[in-house]
Design a protein around this nucleic acid. Structure first.
Lengths: 341, 341
DNA sequence: ATGAAAGCGCTAACAT
DNA sequence: ATGTTAGCGCTTTCAT
């Protein structure tokens, strides 16, 4: 029925041990034997039995290290629960997960953790801290030593990570534009708030939004793009000023940054509920903003799926040798309104 | 480390075979032995190793029957791919899936299939055909004989199915109301189109919509609820008339029924793009309607997740004995606009 | 009613 | 460089 290494061994006239070596590239095997085994395996369309592998591995489980920001950062809660859920489903499948929470304000600790994991013989790494040259170097070193790294939520560009699992930022900007258009009059004046336009990730959403507006026939008048540097006060002050200067402002797209600041500024100026707001994610203050009808839409990125997918990709790579189909795996994007909560 | 039946056997002073019998209720075991084993298992917090189970089962895999409408019905394509994906992940986990495509215009074939599956010793059934008394009886019989049935997409009410996996219809109606409110002026006149109000499932969305409008402070004026009986012409004719009679109609909620008819009626009356439309699902004509800006929003129900979840629930029930937490498992609901495609 | 032992497909330690 | 063998945890005959 199903092809086993035993069958391959018989056909090739070698032992199962040898087949195992060949199939898993463990030691040097005489090239001709190697070729023969490989040929037969391919011809028979051999696929390893995962349950058997898992069982055999259960003594020394495969180890995956997960490197992410400190547990206090609530944003990662759902991602973590996605990973845990995947781990639960992969339970008994021969893997062990080790979480490492590292400082996310500088790259040293994260880099250090990568190195330690590689040295200690980890079989794969899930990474989500920051994009930095030092990190890049370490990821590439890990790759050289055969330890695959999957980045999630926030990528490390140009590194040799196996795959990035996260949101399609550009698309999220376009969706935001579509939503804003649908709730405003033609030529309505809107503002974009972002963190820092020098950051690739921040720029992407803004660009997506602009493109989205174009695709809708230039239906909006983007009067300003505010950089709030992800700080509450900067964002708040600039928005207060903006609202004063533009009494005809009808929409704000919070691409990145403190939504709390936006809500407070609107309240302060008495324009809450009048100015349309589109933002991202589903933090507590955003949920409340939705309920109170201050925020019209928020675009969320299924963090649970993100964690799940990232782990799955690593698992499939290690256990079945299946490389991800693309270097980017974009997770679903959902639009939320109060009723969706 | 992890507790095995071997350990339980040792502690209880019996053989592993006996422990297996007890834990899986296979044959009669002397009650006192039974109690003892159970007590130790509970005390040790025993959890079976799925990989080992799978491997041991690989000779006679557990069989699940999947009963759904004919393959031609495109609506089920994505659900099927969700099931297949789940099956892929559960590959080597000791299950075999058998698909049965049955007539979905009358209950006989579906009922017959349930009976056959039960007789042939299937270990579980995934069902999605229709809600009917004959079906109900068969599902209950299956339950009596220890064959769990999970319904998906469309439930069989009041039957003894283990669980239903599908959309929260009432909520989808509320979300529709929220969306409609967000793109119309206060007191805008809107119409609801449904299939047949005598059907529970159809009523739910309509009720949800009404409730949603109330929650938004009665912001809409629902002038009529049209029953289109899921037929193109009925729907088309009624909408044409409605549009003529109400030149101030600003929104249509297609709760159930032919969205094509709605689009055509709007085109015919030259009101496409002027009248806001909210509907469900993502059939080809709806995608096109979105692109052409005739449809504003469509609410979709992640069919892939639906299939995946349904299979998972059955698997967990059979292999780990874990019953679903609730009788209903509601799948995610997503809002789509052109940009989300 | 219960125990003993073989086997599911694969890995790893030990031989040769 | 390759073969042999003993598990991994559970199920399932076959004895008793």
């Amino acid at each position: 029925m199903t092809v086993t290494i035993r069958e391959i061994a018989e056909r090739a006239g070698v032992s199962r041990g040898t087949v195992d070596r060949v199939l898993n590239g463990r030691e040097r095997v005489k090239p001709e034997v190697r070729e023969k085994v490989l040929a037969i395996a391919k011809q028979l369309n051999y696929v390893p039995n995962l349950a058997a592998k898992a069982l055999a591995f259960s003594k020394n489980p495969v180890r995956f290290g997960i490197i992410m920001p400190p547990e206090e950062i609530r944003f990662y809660d759902e991602i973590r629960s996605g990973i845990d859920e995947a781990a639960e489903e992969l339970k008994d499948l021969g893997i062990r997960l080790d979480y490492y929470y590292v400082d996310n304000t500088s790259p040293e600790e994260a880099a250090q953790t990568i190195r330690q994991l590689v040295q200690s013989g980890a079989n794969g790494i899930l990474f989500s801290v920051m994009d930095d040259q030092l990190i890049r170097t370490h990821i590439d070193q890990a790759a050289d030593l055969g330890v695959p790294v999957v980045t999630f939520n926030s990528d490390v560009e140009n590194s040799r990570r196996v795959c990035f699992v996260g949101q399609d930022l550009q698309k999220s900007g376009r969706v935001a534009a579509g939503l804003m258009c649908s709730v405003t009059k033609p030529q309505a004046k809107v503002a974009i708030v972002t963190g820092n336009l020098r950051f690739h990730a921040h720029r992407m959403r803004v660009e997506g939004f602009r493109q989205g507006v174009l695709e809708r026939g230039g239906q909006l008048d983007i009067i300003q793009t505010v950089e709030g540097f992800d700080r509450y006060t900067d964002t708040y002050n600039q928005l207060i000023q903006l609202l004063e200067e533009h009494t005809d402002l009808t929409g704000i797209y919070m691409a990145t940054g403190s939504v709390k600041a936006c809500i407070d500024a609107l309240r302060q100026s008495g324009r809450e509920g009048t100015v349309r707001v589109v933002c991202n994610d589903l933090l507590p203050e955003i949920q409340q903003g939705l309920q109170e009808r201050i925020i019209d839409f928020t675009i969320v990125q299924n963090p649970k799926q993100q964690g799940y997918r990232a782990l799955r990709i690593l698992y499939d790579l290690i256990f079945t040798g299946k490389h991800p189909e693309a270097k980017h795996y974009y997770t679903e994007m959902n639009i939320c309104i109060p009723e969706s909560l």
